[in-house]
Design a protein around this nucleic acid. Sequence first.
DNA 1: AAAAAAGTCAACCGCCACGAT
DNA 2: AATCGTGGCGGTTGACTTTTT
Length: 204
Amino acid sequence: MCIQTLKNKEGNRSGFWTAEEDQKLAQVIQLHGPTKWQSLAINAGLNRSGKSCRLRWMNYLRPNIKRGNISDQEEDLILRLHKLLGNRWSLIAGRLPGRTDNEIKNYWNSHLSKKIMKQNKEKQTKKKKKLVQEMIKEVDHNYHNDYNHNHNGYYDNDIGCSKRNEIISIFDQDNYYLNSTLWDEPLNLVWMSNFLEVDETNNN
DNA sequence: AAAAAAGTCAACCGCCACGAT
DNA sequence: AATCGTGGCGGTTGACTTTTT
């Protein structure tokens, strides 16, 4: 791995820590305790900011740190705590022994946020489908009872048209499946339900 | 095989709170 | 009361890795 040799604004080293730096920091903390980070950095002979030293200690060097392999129980706890507390990572981490706020935050951003988004999308799709199915049923009812339905099979009464409009707007918000040609066709419920099936397979 | 895209995560930055002076 | 130093936090970056094309 290539080790960065960047410097920050104050001219201190920045970027990934080397094993040698870790060792120096751990030694000086053993002597003086994890406080006064600015002077610790100097005592350790590290050309690092106090903040950088503190972060390295808190997230990687301090004892009893757990890294990786977040269990199902931990994940469940993170999800529930996030629902309760929002992005208050240090509070959440405080309830998970050995875990750091940074790790929880990273785990959330790279795993859980997508998972949650997917779950929400699925719920929304389910809801939408149910609604559309109910409306189709309603239109179907009108279709068979409406004397304005003309001899070509066109569906031209006002209620039916507005219902059809509603269905299109709910079902096809992205204008993805349906297009304006729908208006030139009788409302074909079988045809409509084909799209519902397509929708279902796309989301699995 | 290689280039591009997507994912991961360690570390930085800016901001804020708080205690000391 | 004002200023300064320090610690703590969350958002974000970007180097590196992995997956996809």
